[in-house]
Design a protein around this nucleic acid. Structure first.
Lengths: 123, 123
DNA sequence: CCGCATCCTGATCGATACTG
DNA sequence: CAGTATCGATCAGGATGCGG
């Protein structure tokens, strides 16, 4: 494992840089929204998030766990059961994410339209 | 040119997927925050955003332009002057971004701490 | 000053096969 | 069930040089 590991150095005065560091991967958002309404099992996440591979799901979950946003609980059943859940810290992110999501719902069509216009012009 | 161009197909029912599509690149956020307070010239953006290369800055600006969030204005002076500015659509994103930024200010230390703890445990 | 084209490297990600 | 390990392919992004 040990693919990308965002370093905790980079103490630049520019804090904006961090703003999306935590949340900015494709799958992170999707996992986050799945966990918004309570704990879920690994396999359920996998089913719910269309197109995610085992590798990506695990990687994303590990990152969220490392960042303290998600907790992982293993039940030693046979076969294994693993549940993921937002931590207290993780829950504080729900509201900001919802707001961003609302923006998308409200304005995504405009973005699509803008793209179409731009592409036509620069054909 | 024509490196990454997010397609406008992908009409999956899962709208969450789009939520960060528009905004999720490292430099997009930084450019956005620079333009939050009014128009700026290319060279000023370059100076303001530490570490960005010409290529990345231009690429980011083109994307934002394509998405209809930023407008580009060329003054045929010698030498050339180019100014960038948030569009009306772009301005609607300011508030969501601010909220995300506030979350970062409030909780980033916790994330850093969580990482340190996680890394120590999994040494 | 503002940007595009090209080359090149390392990171990312999917596919596949294999464990507790 | 819930992962880990490894191998390729693809892609982002830095460096450099040129052009309007």
């Amino acid at each position: 494992m040990n693919e990308q590991v965002p370093s905790q150095d980079n103490e630049s005065p520019c804090h904006y840089r961090r703003a999306l560091e935590v949340v900015s991967s494709k799958w992170t958002v999707l996992v986050f929204y799945e966990l918004e309404n309570g704990k879920k099992r690994y396999s359920d996440l996998k089913k719910a998030i269309e197109g995610v591979t085992q590798k990506m799901l695990t990687q994303t979950l590990r990152q969220l766990e490392r960042d303290g946003l998600v907790s992982r609980c293993v039940y030693p059943t046979v076969p294994l059961t693993v549940e993921y859940e937002l931590t207290t810290l993780g829950k504080t992110l729900i509201e900001p994410m919802r707001i961003l999501h609302k923006w998308t719902d409200a304005h995504y069509d405009s973005v699509l339209q803008a793209r179409k216009a731009y592409d036509k012009e620069n054909a």
